[in-house]
Design a protein around this nucleic acid. Structure first.
Lengths: 336, 336
DNA sequence: TATTATTCCGTAAACGTTTACGTAAATAAA
DNA sequence: TTTATTTACGTAAACGTTTACGGAATAATA
């Protein structure tokens, strides 16, 4: 602990602790000269106010929590980057929690945050089914903003991307470049995010009077190894000529599976994926991606949370939709 | 705030707050039956102890701070992942701060943390020159563990990788595969991390009686655009046949520069980089990397911090070195 | 001059815990 | 039986702020 507290500071200045406190918070009740004296002494003694005493008294923590499935993920780390920037501008602190897709862990974090440790929560939900009761209890008690991984059944402010349109356009792009049998690598299907992507895929097929076979939808497995096996099998059996992957993690194994199966991307199979990979351009072949504005989502989500803090937000159930970017690259190039 | 506090709980139970507090912390002074009653009522009323009151009284925050240059970075997000896991096991909270390589921001974070908000700090230093005075003041007041980005002049526990050997071996690998004129993309040179990597490069050249020209060392610039221009220029003018990049961010532009200059990797130029890119395998050509055990570094650093908390660490200046992994891929393949 | 308003600061209580100290009752030892 | 010990709990102070309330001194107004 910083050995110097407000009492010591007050003693040195021949003032009361109350005056010092007010001077530091720039209260109008304190004279200009006193304020200067206080600030100078505070600097001289390296006084740092005790945040716990302050939080306890003010019932404000100046801290927000960010709950995400994984930190080591291109999308989430960018989003956290955005959140941290906004928080720093506001002199807020950011607590990080990762659920590893477990709703049990998620719920336990949320419960612990009911203690008042944070003034608000930014959360991207785990894939496992959420405990809606608990989540309701939380969001009744403190501001919660959902981002990207959201759930229709849960009310609240949500920042998402145009998942439906993105998936739809991606499939359209595949079709325009010659695909007739388009597979879908399914994930996040317990969440609205995943449902919207899937629906975009399905509707695009329907609009183009293309095969809409259940067999063309591959549900992801429990881990990377399993996913690889599933994907390889899926490609080998279904022989799709185009694939839309709903998450980056499922697109990468496609490269390896195609190599193994001696299939050429994009000639034998065109691939497109939701992804925030920074180096999609450098892949072999470069990967056509649906790029979500992850950093901006972080900025927006945090910005709204602060608006809620400041009572400048009046739409408790508004959903804000940011546009993703379809970046066309080699992996979906039409055959000449 | 959770409306129910320890006094309400005590009132409901016809006990004193002191007894309730002790029962919750499993004190031996409380009878078994009372403990059970208290726990049941606490669960029933959804009691969550106020962390600020607790921290204020106990002078413990159950929180650690992680300060890194960037969150959206393969290495750091993996390290944070490791740190978060260790913290969660211990029921600790993790605060995240990013400096964007500014030592001014870094210092301001550190100063704010002197308030006692955290019990300890894990830090990976910014490239700009550190304010050693300030850092000394911090580490005198609370436990600090440095990881990866460390500085020789600053005392403390450090978790690093075998940068010197890694760079040395990387150059050796380039030489073995036919390189005669090896360039170095310099970064982090204000830190021991960067100095060690550079020295490994230099010594490997010396041992192989190879050209050791100042011109072959390219100092990185201020941003991505500048780096790209510098690198393109560097390759065009110096015409190295091998390059060791000290950070991932400088290796990627090499791909683009080579494409622009119509140089083939690995035939015209072999490339190797310190990198934690998950998909180095999929690059075109796949990139030979020096892979740091980022996740493990996070685990180790956090583990040591907790040992310090528990007075189970007696080496205030120990440096722990984890081994990086040289993964040989296409970008350094010997010409047949 | 008397009254009111303004400026500037101090006193003390409050935030919700934890813990040193005290104590009554029950049990053990002498 | 008397004394010492143990068990189980309560009282109250402390952690370091913030803020409601009050009050003295000065300035403004009647």
């Amino acid at each position: 602990m910083g050995a110097v507290n407000i009492k010591k500071l007050a003693f040195e200045l021949n003032l009361s602790a109350a005056t010092v406190s007010r001077a530091l918070r720039d209260s109008h009740e304190i004279s200009r000269e006193t304020k200067i004296r206080v600030h100078e002494m505070a600097k001289k003694l390296n006084y740092e106010p005790n945040p716990f005493a302050s939080s306890l008294r003010k019932q404000k923590s100046k801290t927000i929590a960010v709950i995400v499935p994984e930190i080591a993920n291109n999308f989430f780390s960018l989003a956290i980057n955005g959140i941290e920037e906004v928080a720093r501008e506001r002199d807020y602190h950011v607590l990080i929690y990762q659920t590893h897709e477990s709703s049990e862990i998620e719920t336990s974090f949320l419960m612990r945050l009911l203690s008042g440790r944070v003034d608000g929560i930014l959360i991207s939900l785990a894939c496992e089914n959420v405990d809606k009761e608990q989540l309701k209890r939380i969001s009744d008690q403190l501001p919660v903003v959902f981002f990207d991984r959201v759930h229709d059944d849960i009310e609240g402010v949500k920042i998402i991307t145009d998942d439906y349109e993105s998936a739809y356009n991606a499939v359209q792009h595949l079709i325009e470049n010659g695909c007739k049998k388009i597979g879908y690598l399914l994930a996040l299907n317990t969440l609205s995010t995943g449902k919207n992507r899937l629906q975009g895929y399905l509707d695009a097929l329907k609009c183009n009077v293309l095969q809409d076979d259940k067999g063309l939808i591959m549900q992801s497995g429990a881990n990377n190894d399993e996913n690889y096996a599933l994907i390889k099998n899926f490609i080998a059996e279904q022989k799709p000529d185009g694939i839309l992957s709903s998450i980056e993690e499922l697109a990468m194994p496609c490269y390896f599976a195609c190599k193994e199966l001696q299939l050429n991307i994009p000639n034998d199979l065109k691939l497109i994926s939701f992804s925030n990979l920074a180096h999609a351009e450098l892949l072999n072949p470069s990967l056509t991606t649906i790029n979500q504005p992850a950093f901006e989502i972080g900025l927006e989500a945090a910005g709204i949370l602060f608006k809620i803090f400041n009572k400048r937000w009046y739409e408790p159930n508004e959903t804000i939709i940011l546009k993703s970017n379809l970046i066309k690259r080699e992996s979906t190039r039409a055959i000449l």
